[in-house]
Computed example of a mutant assay.
Amino acid sequence: MLIDKHGRKINYLRLAVTDRCNLRCFYCMPEEGLDWLGRKELMTYEEMLHICSVMVKMGIEKIRITGGEPFVRKEFMSFLTKLSKLQGLQELTITTNGVLTAPFVPELKKLGVKSVNLSLDTLDRNRFFAITRRDELPKVLETMEALLHHDIEVKLNAVVMEGKNTDDILPLVELTKDLPVSVRFIEEMPFNGEGNHYTSLTWDHVQILNTIKDKYPDIQKVPDAPFSTSYNYQVPGHKGNVGVIAAYTRSFCGTCNRIRLTPLGVLKTCLYGDGVMNVKDLMRAGAGETALQAALMDAIGKKEINGWEAERNSLERSSLNASMATIGG
């Protein structure tokens, strides 16, 4: 069992399979992109499968595949097929921007993927282009329709950005009237490859929720799932629901059950902290399963209580200027 020093059971891994992405969302990376990792720097699929197998044996029950954009990495579906067969893995989910995803939805269903997080910051095509620097909204909507058609749970992730898409909050909430989707509004974080855009965060979770309540005063709080990162609500009569994620305010950190592996193989026990070790380097140096387990238990045993503590303890202050593509979305 993976237990941190605060007695929390760690059973959720977010695995980034690549830092590359086919969009250029301004809140994630500069317009020119990033200095992409070389192929030899990335964990191979075989290394990913091995470390995931070790972690599942130690109590990891859920794995979310992230990027970058997972579907831009070659042979991704082959890797996903093998990963889905890990004995003991109870839940396999994906976060994607949806541009390349639609053709693979039937196969995702066959693999047992029950939930997909789809990045969708706006329903307006012009604003989508302004935010992502790519004209790909129709493909994202096609992916959403395909996922719903195949009865895969859809969570729409919208990063709320002052002066960019606050006019989209209510249209996105309106989607939940007729569609069984969960629309989650996320506070903007500083991980954009450039540093934060603002000296303070105007559109925090309170402001987002108040904006929704002005239009839907009868919106009701619904129970949050264990370890939920979102505060969840539902408008009476709507098929879907609404969540607000205090990603910058970090008010949900106390129940954290998550760890991350970056494309480089760096283990992060907190999004706001430093990488605590490199499992890729350990594997390439010949570490066996017992050594990997010992290293993982030691690192996770030191996990901070929340993101504020992790940030205070961070030695690499520049990590807050990193991109989510290199950390793992």
Rank of each mutant, 00 (worst) to 15 (best):
M1W: 00
M1N: 04
L2F: 13
R8A: 03
I10C: 10
Y12I: 02
Y27D: 12
C28M: 06
D35I: 07
L37E: 04
K40R: 13
M48H: 01
I51V: 15
C52Y: 00
V54E: 06
G59N: 05
K62F: 00
K62S: 07
I63Q: 06
T66F: 01
V72P: 11
L80F: 09
L80G: 11
S84C: 04
S84V: 01
Q87Y: 14
E91G: 00
E91C: 04
G98N: 03
L100I: 13
F104H: 15
F104P: 02
V105I: 14
E107L: 07
L108N: 02
L108I: 01
K109I: 00
G112C: 05
V116N: 07
V116H: 06
N117C: 05
S119W: 01
D124T: 12
N126Q: 15
F128A: 10
T132K: 04
R133E: 10
R134H: 11
D135S: 13
E136C: 13
E136L: 15
M144D: 03
L147G: 08
L148K: 06
H149R: 14
H150E: 12
I152C: 08
V159Y: 02
V160Q: 10
E162Y: 13
L170C: 09
P180M: 06
R184I: 08
I186Y: 08
E187Q: 13
D204Q: 12
H205Y: 15
I208N: 09
L209M: 15
I219E: 07
K221H: 10
P226F: 08
S228E: 11
Y233Q: 02
G237H: 03
G243F: 05
V244C: 07
A247I: 11
A247K: 11
Y248S: 14
T249F: 05
R250L: 12
S251Y: 05
N257V: 00
V266N: 15
V266F: 01
C270Q: 12
D274Y: 01
G275Q: 09
M277I: 14
N278K: 07
V279P: 03
M283F: 04
G288H: 04
I300D: 02
K302S: 09
K302G: 03
E311S: 13
S314H: 04
L315I: 05
E316A: 12
A322Q: 09
A325L: 14
G329F: 03
G329H: 01
